[in-house]
Write a protein that binds this DNA or RNA. Structure first.
Lengths: 212, 212
DNA sequence: GAGAAATTCAAACAACTGTTTGAATGCAAT
DNA sequence: ATTGCATTCAAACAGTTGTTTGAATTTCTC
């Protein structure tokens, strides 16, 4: 019956929950921790959201907003290769941008759900992955041409997706490897330049191999 | 299914723990669940291992055995490219072999630790990743030649590593995407052939780009 | 300002966690 | 048979979890 015009404990709870869920994961996060950070009583979560699960749902709704717009606006004056470069630039800078708290939390939660899928993964895929994946697939279809089989297109699409996510997943590993591996942060341009070159080389090789 | 040929409850506990830890992860796994599957008393874990943490440590020790041998025996008669192909074949068939329970559990636990690193990740990296990563790095160094900078070599190494792990991580995502993405299981040859072509094309492109 | 509704709060709840306890049991050597 | 040790077991422990309760307090409405 009543929208909240004033910022109050409900918003504070949501904000704190985003922090904790991203940091600890759903299971390890405790409502007491969340309420503590929000300066709220333990019962506040159940009063305002109905429970821990519902709160997590509200966080997902907040952190994976509906987005109609494409990652990269289609520009007919640019080649598919340039289009791919724009796409890689946009996606990488979002994935590895540690400046925006909510975006960081988004990918942290995404990673957690990938490693241990819950029923919420359907929602996340629909909101976060599906549009971006379709966009990439369209770009690759142009680069690879009409003769490439569907499963090759799917494999390639998955490959490039994993090249972008690479350091998001493997940073904890890379940090423990010798010799020391470089981080993406602070070298974004170099990273994008590299995966663009690598991807394009891979795509062309795949395209060639399907001609024979 | 409840017949216990195991005269040793300690072994039964270890075996059950491998199952549960791989399936649920450390936090969500309960000693009661483990003891139940092992037909053992709840106190058995503490008696035989000293606690849940120590049991997890024992599981890691069992599931990530010391391996001195290389993934692919070096064969001077083969080119670096063929060497890479052998490496990709060996690694992929291990990662995606759902036949061997322990190997499946190994990668499940590895994935969990990657998404939510604990202090045990150091051990896992040292046992599981470091030797394989060094091996791959050596192969790539030969393919890319001596002129390629270190950070490019590191990036490329990480790239190919992530291409192999790709479907292990993203299968839950791919299952929820439209159009349906192909699985690796049942198409191992096609998968390896693809990532080999893609990788080699990417590597050559990277090598070319460093010449200018 | 009175009354009603919405919100906060301390406290308790019930279920679950890993762990401990101390008695009962099994078993091999004497 | 008895001793001594290793193992099992039911029960309880102490702590944490999400959730509920019912009274106190604030906020809003008239």
């Amino acid at each position: 019956m009543n929208e909240k015009p004033d910022v109050n404990t409900k918003d504070a709870l949501l904000s704190a929950a985003m922090e904790v869920f991203a940091d600890k994961g759903f299971d390890a996060a405790t409502v007491r921790d969340i309420c503590g950070r929000a300066n709220a009583n333990v019962a506040a979560v159940n009063y305002h959201f109905g429970g821990k699960d519902a709160l997590y749902g509200a966080v997902l709704e907040e952190i994976f907003p509906k987005e109609e717009h494409l990652t990269v606006e289609p520009d007919t004056s640019r080649s598919p290769e340039e289009h791919l470069h724009d796409y890689l630039t946009a996606m990488s800078s979002e994935i590895y941008d540690r400046g925006n708290g909510m975006v960081t939390q988004r990918w942290a939660i995404f990673l957690r759900e990938m490693a241990k899928p819950s029923h919420n993964l359907d929602f996340i895929v629909q909101r976060q992955v599906q549009p971006r994946a379709s966009e990439l697939r369209a770009i690759l279809a142009k680069i690879l041409g009409p003769d490439v089989p569907d499963h090759i297109l799917a494999f390639s699409s998955s490959n490039i997706w994993s090249l972008m996510l690479d350091h998001l997943l493997t940073q904890p590993i890379l940090d423990r490897l010798k010799p020391k591996r470089p981080m993406v942060q602070g070298n974004m341009e170099g990273f994008v330049k590299h995966i663009f070159t690598f991807s394009l080389g891979g795509l062309n090789a795949v395209k060639e191999s399907t001609k024979g």
